[in-house]
Structures are given as C-alpha cells and as structure tokens.
Design a binder for these strands. Structure first.
Lengths: 245, 245
DNA sequence: AAGTGGTCTAGACCACTAG
DNA sequence: TAGTGGTCTAGACCACTTT
C-alpha cells in the first residue's frame, strides 16, 4: 500500500477529479507508485484529499481508461504492471513526430482544388465531382523520407497555403481554425510500393508499405478530411494499447 | 428532437445505466434515432425513465466512449453522423472472424514447450531460457490461408491441445480457464514475406505482409501471451474508430 | 435570459473477494 | 466476516452556447 502526497486546489479552474488524476499519473510515472502496488481504497483517498467519493472515482476511472490502473471489485485498485505505450490518437503524424522529438520536415507536392473522385466524394459525403482540396505531402524525418500523405478536404473548411503546411501539421492548422475533430474511422493495411511511390520514398518498387486511410469528422458530424497515407514499413509502425473495459 | 420509448426494469440484475445505454444504442442502430438528431436533455431523460441524472449521464457517457453520441456543453447530445466501425478490441482473430461469419479454420503447425528466446522472454517477463509454450497456427477462411500466428505463453497458464485449438480461438480457451485479459500492447507494421511464410500463405516470396505483435496481460498485470502474427495484406486489414475525449 | 452539459456532494445499498 | 469497488439517489452550483 502506497500513499503519495495529494493535494487539490479548489480555486483552480481545473476540475478536481482531473487534478487528482494528474497527480496520480505523475506519481506512477515518477515511480512513487510502483507497478503492481495497491492504492488506498476510494473512501480513504476521498477523505485524505477532502473530496467526495464520486469525484475520486471519476479520477480513477480516467486512469483506468488510460490503461494506468486496474480495478477489481472486492480487491482494490492497482497500478498496471505492463508498460503502457502511447496509443494511436486523433492526432496527426506531425504532432506524433514532434512529440517524439524527431524533427519532422514537410514537402508539399501538390495543393490544388479539383473535382472529387468517387472514393474521396463518398468518404467526404459530397456528390462526385464537387470541388475539393487535394493535398499531397512528403513527410521526412532527419532528412529521410518517411511517408507520402494524400488528403482531401471540403473547400470551405480552411485556407491552406504550402508555406503554412511546411511548418505545421494539418491537424494543428485545423485546430487553430476552430475545427474540433471528434471521431475518425481508420483502416490500416499493407501493399507493395508503386514505382512513383518508391521514387518519392527512396525505396525500390514492390517494397512493402504500411497504409492508413482515415476519415475524420468534426463535432457536428461533418466529414472534414479523407486521408490516404503510405509509410515506409522499414521506418514506421503503429503502436497502441488496448484496455478491456 | 426524437423521443424513443425507454423503459428500465428495476428487478433486473443488469445495471440501470446499462439498460438505458442498450436501449439508446438499439434505437440508433434501428434508425429510430437518426444521425445528427438531438436527444432530450439529461433532466428530461431522467424524469421520463424514472432515473436520477447521474445514472442517465453514465449511460450517455458509455455511448460517447463507444463513439455513438457526441455531447456539447450548452448545446445538447447528438447522434453521431459518421458510421462507426467495429474497433480493434482485446479479442482474438478467431472471435473476429466468427463475428463476421467467415467460418475460420485453424491448422496447428506446432505446439511444444521450449526454452524462451530473448524476445519472447523479454516480452513475457521471464528469464531467457525459461520453458514456455510455443504455438504456431495457420488460420484459414473459406479454405484460403489468411494468417500465420505465432504465440508464446508461460507453461503454467493453461493446458493446450492441438485438438482444442483447432475448434476454438486461443482467447476463448483462456477465458474459459478463468484468465481475464485486461490490457495489451500492440504494434502494427508491414514487411516482405520470407520464402517459408509465402509457402504457407499461398503467396510469393517478397509480397507485403501485415504484421502484428502483441503482449497481453491479465488483471494481475502478469504477461499471459506474446504473439507475433503475419497476415496476407491482400486479404486482411485492421479497422478502428478513434474518439476524441 | 434561458437552456444545456460539466462538476461536485454526502449519503445509501449491493456484489464480489478474501481470510 | 470485513473490506473493496459497483451502482444509485436528489439535490447543488457553474460554464458554456444560443436566442
């Protein structure tokens, strides 16, 4: 049983449950709460923090969803033993790379408005032939090609410039414009590189590529982006953590 | 604003919030609640079902996590427009295939106890050389090879027989033995098929394969399984839905 | 100004697990 | 039997969005 120091600031605009969750997470990351160790029970935790039990439960549930804690009825709450890896999130590759300090670079290959093809139209929920923004970028890290990114967006979402796209991720630009991405459907597969792809990615024709297609929707349910990305399998893979609820 | 019929059974052992969530989900699937439509507010919903607001909120939160509903403060709760696909879950490929009615078949290629190699030992958290169960299976659907599955398990988890493995998924067997899988780390990538893999999968050497490695832990945080699977990219891909919280 | 979801409280009873 | 988390209630006040 381990009892990390916990204090909440009732004058902070940050919700109390979130303050508690952050402190517990920090204690886990710092090693103050060791993997496999048990937390105090919820009542005791509530008393010690001066919070109600439902608020404490909300904080714990947050960390259970994150895969950091495990609860068992009749037993208690334990710190997960398994090392949790960063899950696939609703973020862009650019954000991911920045987060892992990989100094990404972007080369805009195409930025144009063109009639939507059948696939893009279907995924964006617009009639075929509707003008859409078509964007193709090459993403590099440490001057090595990593991925070829193709995106389609409705024309009225955001004004994109090649310049801005070379210094910011697409999702970052969307967020700054006030677009709130809420839900996305993704498919991950593999296929052989075409000659054109191989040339751009500095590989040979036929090498395995990891593919990801994604349709992202904002909080109104409107399709904001249809993406078809291919990654060099030799330099990229997806990592995720699954939590049984 | 749409008001589906909702009733809860207070004598049922099923939690009230779950009963409500199920009925709302059923209404969404059935089309009674159409995409984009708004639900009643939480107070009204609570009154109409004879439940308290926190219980109603718990039901709604469940469906938000599932990606079926979206909540916006000051606005209301809406049915998501985007079609939600089945996410990657902590289930086996076998279960997935059965669920999609694909009549899977399994051929056990190897089932033996052998000293753990470095990678398996590291992922299972045992010293290298510790005896572990090594399992290799070929999974087919409609008599076509689909994937080559390699698993390592600690010897004392479960008694496996080739016979049982040919008629049940590994996860099903584990569940039946009382093992509760709680968390798993997965990596999805791609690479070219070796000659041996190509022969087994009825492909040619060098074709792109989709790869998945997974380490699964039970609710005590003990590593139960280390899997290395390769899929024919021409016949399989991963689908998942991301929800921004 | 009115209506919505977000947060929070202080209790209560129940189901499950362990010794 | 004692202790744990799971569920549930009936309120309260606040922050945000829309009218």
């Amino acid at each position: 049983m381990q009892r990390p120091a916990l204090t909440v600031d009732r004058n902070s605009p940050v919700p109390l449950y979130f303050q508690l969750a952050e402190q517990l997470e920090a204690a886990i990351v710092a090693g103050t709460l060791t993997p496999g160790s048990r937390l105090e029970n919820e009542i005791e935790l509530a008393d010690r923090c001066g919070l109600s039990r439902p608020t404490v439960r909300q904080a714990i549930q947050h960390l259970v969803d994150k895969g950091l804690l495990v609860r068992k009825r009749g037993v208690g709450t334990q710190v997960v033993q398994a090392q949790v890896k960063r899950p696939i999130e609703l973020t862009s590759l650019y954000d991911d790379l920045v987060a892992s300090q990989r100094s990404p670079r972007t080369k805009v290959l195409e930025l144009a408005t063109a009639p939507a093809g059948d696939e893009a139209a279907k995924n964006l929920g617009v009639p075929p032939g509707t003008p859409v923004i078509r964007l193709r970028r090459l993403r590099l890290t440490d001057s090595e090609p990593l991925a070829l990114l193709t995106n389609h967006l409705p024309v009225d979402i955001v004004d994109l410039t090649a310049e801005r796209l070379e210094s910011n991720g697409l999702y970052e630009i969307l967020r700054a414009t006030g677009v709130n991405l809420r839900i996305a459907n993704q498919t991950i597969g593999a296929r052989a590189a075409t000659t054109a792809e191989a040339t751009l990615l500095d590989e040979r024709r036929g090498v395995p590529l990891l593919t990801m297609t994604r349709t992202a929707f904002d909080d109104n349910g409107r399709a904001i982006e249809f993406a078809t990305h291919v990654y060099r399998a030799s330099r990229y893979s997806f990592t995720l953590t699954l939590v049984e609820r």
